[in-house]
Design a protein around this nucleic acid. Structure first.
Length: 496
DNA sequence: AGTGCAGTTGACTTT
DNA sequence: TAAAGTCAACTGCAC
């Protein structure tokens, strides 16, 4: 008996029903479709994964199903490795083409994609992968990239006519077999404190941002507390593709045109959307930075692993109030603004003098909006002076005075310091014995003494960096990186 | 009242 | 997206 013929749309980090090139292509191709998502055990179990990410995906799928249901389109979520899913599916149905987006992600998913490509090629199935968010695969240099990005962002979205998609009816037995075992409840139960996934929530965040919150965007961007409201909070929706960058860019331009008083903050916001894609493009072009220093000569910097220091950092017990508040906050909510993230990385790398890789894995799990293409380039930039960049060592006390002067954020996340007055909260190690007892904050008992002295540690980090700058091997590597990764044209906002 | 000077502030440069 | 260094201008104060 002839196998039924169909196409497949394979959803990855593009969990939306609009501006979706693979869906659009499948609709235009005419054949019945199978809509597929895979929860892969190897991906769920990888060190960078946290249940918070998969809960977000779960919620996104529920939302997507709501979008698809009126058109009678089922979405098959399989708890199995993707190659195995395709293998089983191809045994029962004849797939002409698999449509998906290109995925700039971990080495793990890249290897998975190669296995899938191999399998599909063997079975004579075409795989059409589409460019996502202006990120280009196979670029050798970035000359012309900003122009290509601008062109993509200005182009009309990939409109999907869901009414034109016809589902392929799979036998329930096959559907059940493909679906695999149910996901453990930890991946499917919502937790308070985290942003919920899904296209509908994504647009709700966009509307509240563009209508109310964006006014103070630039002023509050770096404040640990105010940024939670005044920033867009779209990052997890972009990371999992509940929104395309293009949809957001175009929505922002529309609002900026209609409401001139928002033009400035929204232009600032759009510049960051460009940087978002810029870093993913960087990672796409050199994904080895997931594991090793982008400046290979930096591999010889010796760092002494101190498990207890790392644990103190990871749990918010370093003795530096703002550092601890930030870590506890991101562990509890999955969100922290850019500057505070950079400070956490700087503190681990330069002050505690610990290797960055375990820190990158820890924060990948905490960030609800974990985006490998931003995460790894940023970690490397914060850790090393790479290419044209210089070292940025954040002073945790200065940051505290500058961005949380009244200590509200600190008190919220480090309740041990709740009684300490604002004037003393940034440096609790200065509290006298009397003050410690008066403010219920005994150092070493209620709240830790600093793990190490910031001033000395930063001086050492700067000195080692100075030596590295003189090192011919480091210099040669930097030259290579500048040639390959830097953009030889003027900055995009100027060129535009 | 005007001068000298130590200390502060801010703009700008450098790493 | 940082912070230290440099320098000039400014301030407050003693005399």
């Amino acid at each position: 008996m002839a196998r039924p013929v169909c196409n497949v749309v394979w959803f990855k980090r593009d969990l939306r029903g609009r501006d979706h090139a693979p869906l659009r292509a499948a609709a235009e191709a005419g054949l019945p479709v199978v809509l597929l998502f895979t929860f892969e055990p190897s991906y769920l179990a990888c060190p960078e994964s946290d249940p918070r990410h998969w809960r977000f995906v779960w919620q996104s799928l529920a939302d997507l199903r709501q979008t698809l249901a009126p058109f009678g389109l089922p979405l098959l979520a399989c708890h199995a490795e993707a190659p195995a899913v395709f293998d089983q599916l191809l045994a029962e149905v004849e797939v002409k083409t698999v449509f998906s987006y290109q995925e700039t992600n971990l080495a793990l998913t890249f290897a998975r994609d190669r296995a899938v490509a191999h399998l599909l090629r063997q079975r004579g199935v075409a795989w059409r992968e589409f460019q996502q968010n202006g990120v280009l695969r196979g670029l050798r240099h970035r000359q012309g990239w900003p122009q290509a990005w601008a062109h993509y962002m200005a182009a009309p979205p990939d409109h999907v006519d869901l009414a034109r998609l016809r589902p392929l009816a799979l036998p329930p037995e096959l559907t059940a077999r493909l679906a695999g075992p149910p996901l453990p409840a930890v991946y499917t139960t919502a937790l308070p404190g985290f942003q919920p996934g899904g296209e509908r929530y994504a647009w709700r965040y966009w509307h509240s941002f563009s209508q109310e919150r964006a006014a103070h965007y630039s002023r509050h961007l770096s404040k640990p507390e105010a940024s939670r409201r005044s920033c867009s909070r779209l990052s997890p929706y972009l990371a999992f593709g509940n929104l395309s960058v293009r949809q957001v860019v175009q929505a922002a331009r529309q609002i900026a045109d209609a409401q001139p008083q928002l033009a400035r903050p929204l232009a600032n916001f759009e510049a960051r959307l460009l940087w978002h894609c810029h870093y993913i493009q960087k990672f796409e072009m050199d994904c080895r930075m997931e594991h090793r220093p982008i400046n290979r000569a930096h591999a010889k910097v010796e760092k002494e692993w101190k498990e207890d220091w790392f644990q103190a950092w990871a749990t918010g017990l370093t003795g530096y109030p703002l550092v601890d508040a930030c870590m506890r906050c991101v562990v509890a909510t999955g969100y922290l603004n850019f500057r505070m993230r950079a400070m956490l990385v700087s503190f681990l790398s330069h002050v505690l003098w610990q290797p960055w890789q375990p820190g990158a894995v820890h924060l990948a799990r905490q960030f609800l909006d974990f985006e490998p293409g931003i995460h790894y380039p940023q970690f490397q930039m914060q850790t090393y002076a790479v290419g044209a960049h210089f070292l940025r060592i954040y002073d945790p006390v200065k940051q505290s005075h500058d961005h949380d002067p009244a200590g509200h954020f600190i008190k919220q996340w480090v309740p041990e310091l709740a009684q300490v007055p604002a004037s003393l909260i940034h440096e609790p190690w200065r509290l006298s014995a009397l003050e410690q007892s008066f403010y219920h904050c005994r150092l070493g008992i209620d709240y830790p003494r600093p793990l190490t002295d910031y001033v000395q540690a930063a001086a050492r980090a700067r000195q080692i960096q100075k030596q590295l700058d003189q090192d011919p091997e480091v210099q040669a590597e930097n030259l290579r990186i500048v040639r390959r990764l830097s953009n030889p044209l003027p900055a995009p906002e100027v060129a535009e």
